[in-house]
């Protein structure tokens, strides 16, 4: 394990520094994706005809390789973190939009009727009734988006040391130090597991109102492939 945390100087960063950079590049896009996905999903719920085309567009965007994004974006945002984060944010939409739409649609009609009958306005009903009840499904989507984003950051190394822990991979080849590659992979995996566990914990703490036995069934997003499966798939791209 000697030299595990001893990084080449061209990275101009410590191991912890790279972890911080990696987390920032992975999580900011998820946050941005959530901010965009919430109103998009609300529009899709409101205007049903909008949902299939939106789903189609997000899927097509997801199919565009990040390298292609970089080629276009470099002219505008240069060799920066932003260039890495924009495609990552776009990719989260394919998971987050359906998760939020499913969540909001899962609110029972009689609950909505009751809210109307008690004199909730549309905005109050959205914020106080629909959104809270949709949170478990949204969190399930966030778990997938977060882990997937975490594994995708590494491509940033292609535009010059903007890949967080992924930068170790190029250095491993360059300096013939395979331990650096192991470091990169293991650290990314551990981060993914920790973040996923944190989101599960948030759900348990914030949602005492969900029947435990049926939690997995209630949120359709949970029925999707395990986050790790998607992460592996992304790493292969």
């Amino acid at each position: 394990m000697n030299g595990f945390f001893h990084l080449p100087s061209d990275l101009q960063n410590t191991w912890l520094g790279l972890v911080g950079l990696h987390l920032r590049e992975a999580l900011l896009p998820v946050l941005a994706g959530l901010v965009v996905a919430l109103p998009m999903a609300q529009l899709c719920v409101r205007f049903r005809w909008l949902y299939p085309p939106v789903l189609g567009v997000t899927t097509v965007l997801y199919a565009i390789p990040s390298l292609a994004f970089f080629v276009v974006l470099i002219d505008y945002t240069g060799l920066s973190e932003t260039t890495v984060m924009i495609p990552l944010a776009v990719y989260t939409l394919v998971v987050l939009v359906p998760a939020i739409v499913d969540g909001i649609r899962s609110v029972p009609q009689e609950t909505l009727d009751a809210a109307d009958a008690m004199g909730f306005g549309p905005l109050r009903r959205y914020v106080q009734v629909q959104l809270p009840i949709a949170v478990p499904a949204i969190l399930a989507g966030l778990r997938v988006a977060t882990v997937s984003s975490l594994s995708l950051v590494s491509v940033g190394t292609l535009i010059g040391n903007q890949g967080g822990l992924g930068n170790l991979l190029t250095d491993a080849m360059f300096y013939h130090r395979p331990m650096l590659a192991v470091n990169s992979v293991v650290t990314t995996a551990v981060l993914a597991i920790l973040l996923d566990a944190a989101l599960v914990l948030v759900r348990i703490l914030l949602m005492p109102w969900m029947p435990r036995a049926t939690r997995a069934k209630r949120t359709r997003a949970d029925a999707r492939p395990e986050p790790s499966a998607i992460a592996l798939e992304d790493a292969a791209r």
Partner: peptide, 12 residues
């Protein structure tokens, strides 16, 4: 207003 199946807010 009282409704069939109560229509309670499950998160409260």
């Amino acid at each position: 207003y009282v409704i069939q199946n109560a229509g309670l807010f499950q998160h409260r």
